[in-house]
Design a protein around this nucleic acid. Structure first.
Lengths: 360, 360
DNA sequence: GTGAAAGCGCTAACAA
DNA sequence: TTGTTAGCGCTTTCAC
C-alpha cells in the first residue's frame, strides 16, 4: 500500500475509477510488488507459478495493459516496426506491406507505415528520420540508398532489412531482376519474335526507388543474349503505373516500323500499354504481343502473359529476417533471392505472318 | 550544470557521444533550463525570441529530437493516429489509407496501420484493443460496429472517425450506396435493359465489414424503382474480390434464361465477372452488359462502365475530421456524404436485338 | 520569460 | 522468488 505512489484506492472502485489501471493497481490487488507484476506479465522466469496466476487474474480483472509509452521509456523498446514504401497505392507495395504486417503482428509488433510518395518525401524521411525511436526495426521496400544515406539510417541504431534494391550491409530479400527479364525475352524469342520493345517506368525525380533502370539495363542485355533486336525508339518510358504505361506506349506506335512484341517493366505498365494498343486498334496478341512482370492479380483478367514473382512472400521473408536480427539471432546480412516463373496467358503469340514470311 | 541529472559532459564531445542528445544536453548548450527548451521547441508562447533562436541552434547542432516515449509518457499524447482496415490489398482500402496518411502526416502525426484480415482478426482487435494508448485517434474503414463494440472502442478515450459504414456517435464520411446503385440501374434501364442480375461479395464470416449487404438491398429496391426485373438465381455472390466475382458469375451463366446486364457490387468483382464472361465466350457488351462500382484504376483498362466514388478523398476527409476532433474543434459527430458519378465506358450497351424485338 | 520540482508508468539492477 | 530503488527523458504546474 505505502509503496503505491498514487495512493491506494478502494479496490471495488476498480471498474468505476477513471483512467486505465496502473501496474501498482495490479500489484495491490495481487498482493505483490510492481516488479513482480512486470516480470510475471511479460513471462520472464523466476516467478512462482502461484504468483503468476494471481497476477494474471488481477490484471484480467482490472483490464490492465501496460502503458506503451512508459514501458517504452523504461526499456527502450517500442514493440513497433516501421515499413517504408515509395508508393502506397501500387499493387506490389501493398502486397509487400501485407506480408510484413502479417508476420510482425503475429510476433506481437505493431506496424508504423511510412509512405515516401515522391522525392521530397524521400528526402524528408532521410533528413528528419521520423521513425527515430518509434520503431525497433524497419523494412525498406525498393529504396535505393546511397552509402551516406544508409549510414544515416543505420545511425538510428535499429536493424533494417530491405525488399528489392541492393543495399549492402543489411538483410535483403528480392528477386533476380535480370533473370526475370531473360525469362520474358526468351519466351518471346521461342514464339518467333525478333523485334522487341520495352515500356518502362521513369524514375520519379529524387525518389530513388530501386526497380526502374535495373530492368531496363537487363532488357538490353537480354535482347542480345536471346538474339533479338530492338531500337532506341522502341524503348520508351513514362510515370510508373497504368497511366504512365499508356502514355509511354503512344509515341512508340507512331513509328514507321513497329516491334512485334513489347516487354513491360511491370504488369501495371503493361495494363496501360494494353489500353493504348486497344485504343489504337492494334490487336493483342495477333498484331502485337505483350508480356509483363509481377503477376498482378489483374493479369488473369486482361489475359496478360507475365513473369510471376512472389510478392507477399518477399514482405513476409523480410519481416522474418528483421525479427531474427532484432532478437539477436540470424544473419544480419542475409540475402534471399526468390524464384520467378513464366505465366503464359493470351497476350503473347507468334508474330504476325507477314513479318515472319518477310524474314524467311 | 548541477541541474543535469545525467552529469554534464564536455560539449565538444557532443557528436562523438553515444546515444542521442537529451533535452538537458540542449539546455546546457543553450544556457537555459530543460523546460525552456521544451516550450521553445514546441512553439509554446512565453519564450523570448532570442532564447528561441539559441535553443533552436543548440538543438540543431546536437541533432536533438525529443524521445517519443518520454514525451508521450509525460504528456499522454502519442502523435500517432491509427487506421484500421478490413483488408489491406483491396484497392479501395489502400486508396483510403493513402488519403488518411497524407493528411495526418502533413499534420505531424505518424500512422499505425492495423489490418483486420478476417473474423478472428476483427474479434482480437475489439477484444484486446491493441491500439490502446498507442494512438491519439483512429480512422476506421468500412467496419460495421455493434453498439457494445463501439462503446468498447470509445473506452480507449480517443476520437474516432469512420469511412463507410453507418456508425452513429462518431464522425463519418461515406457515400450514399443506395443512390449509387440507383445510378447504375438507371443507366441500364435507359439503355433498354429489363432483366438484370447482380454479382456481390459475401460477408466474410465474423468480419462485419460495412459494404456487403447494403448494396444488395439497394439493388433490389432499385430494380423495382427502375421498373426492371431480376430473379433469385441472377443475384449471386462469393468472396469479395476478383476471384470471388469470377466464381460467383459461373453458376449464373448456366441458367436457362440469362439477364442482359449485370451489376457488380464493386469493380474488382466486376473484373472477375468479366473474366468468367470472356471464358464463357459471352461477348461484353454485345451479349451482356456489365456495370461496376468504384471506378478502380483498372476500370479504364478493361473498359468497364462504373459508378465512380472519390476514394482517397474520403480517407482525407475522415482524417481531417479526426484531426479537428483531436484538437477540440469541429463537430465530433459530423457526417459527410461524397458525390458519385456515372462513368460510361464500353462494357454497357443496349441489350441484344433478339430480346428487344421480342419485347416490342 | 524562465527555472525548479514533481511526476508520467514502467523496467532493471540490486538486495534480501 | 520477491521487493526496493533508481532511473528512462520528457512535460507541466507553480514560483519567481
Amino acid at each position: 500500500m505505502s509503496a503505491d505512489p498514487r495512493g491506494s484506492r478502494d479496490p471495488d472502485d476498480a471498474l468505476a475509477e477513471q483512467g486505465p489501471a496502473s501496474i501498482f493497481d495490479v500489484a495491490d490487488r495481487a498482493g505483490v510488488s510492481a516488479s513482480t507484476v512486470s516480470r510475471s506479465l511479460r513471462g520472464l522466469p523466476n516467478v512462482a507459478p502461484a504468483t503468476r496466476v494471481r497476477v494474471a487474474l488481477a490484471a484480467e480483472e482490472l483490464a490492465y495493459v501496460a502503458s506503451p509509452a512508459a514501458s517504452g521509456l523504461a526499456s527502450g523498446r517500442t514493440s513497433t516496426v516501421g515499413i517504408v514504401v515509395p508508393f502506397l497505392t501500387r499493387w506490389f507495395f501493398m502486397r509487400v506491406v501485407q506480408g510484413v504486417e502479417e508476420v510482425v503482428r503475429a510476433a506481437g509488433y505493431d506496424v508504423l507505415l511510412h509512405n515516401l510518395r515522391d522525392g521530397a518525401g524521400r528526402e524528408q524521411f532521410l533528413e528528419r528520420l521520423p521513425l527515430n525511436r518509434k520503431v525497433d526495426g524497419m523494412v525498406l521496400v525498393d529504396l535505393a540508398l546511397q552509402p551516406d544515406e544508409q549510414a544515416r539510417l543505420q545511425s538510428l541504431g535499429v536493424p533494417v532489412t530491405v525488399v528489392g534494391g541492393d543495399a549492402l550491409g543489411v538483410g535483403a530479400v528480392g528477386i533476380d531482376d535480370a533473370a526475370g527479364v531473360r525469362i520474358a525475352l526468351q519466351h518471346l524469342s521461342h514464339l518467333g519474335h525478333h523485334d522487341v520493345g520495352m515500356v518502362g517506368g521513369t524514375a520519379v525525380p529524387g525518389l530513388d526507388f530501386a526497380v526502374p533502370g535495373s530492368r531496363r539495363l537487363a532488357f538490353l542485355d537480354a535482347v542480345d543474349e536471346a538474339c533479338l533486336a530492338t531500337a532506341p525508339e522502341w524503348v520508351v518510358s513514362d510515370d510508373w503505373g497504368i497511366e504512365g504505361g499508356a502514355r509511354a506506349t503512344e509515341p512508340l506506335l507512331s513509328g514507321r516500323r513497329l516491334p512485334t512484341a513489347l516487354f513491360a517493366e511491370c504488369d501495371e505498365i503493361a495494363f496501360g500499354a494494353l489500353r493504348t494498343l486497344r485504343l489504337a486498334g492494334l490487336d493483342v496478341p495477333r498484331r502485337m504481343s505483350v508480356i509483363g512482370f509481377d503477376d498482378h492479380e489483374m493479369a488473369s483478367v486482361v489475359n496478360l502473359t507475365t513473369v510471376a514473382q512472389p510478392v507477399q512472400a518477399q514482405g513476409a521473408a523480410a519481416a522474418t529476417m528483421l525479427l531474427d536480427v532484432m532478437h539477436g539471432r540470424g544473419d544480419p546480412f542475409a540475402r534471399l533471392v526468390m524464384p520467378m516463373q513464366l505465366v503464359v496467358r493470351g497476350s503473347t503469340a507468334p508474330p504476325p505472318r507477314r513479318r515472319r514470311v518477310d524474314r524467311r
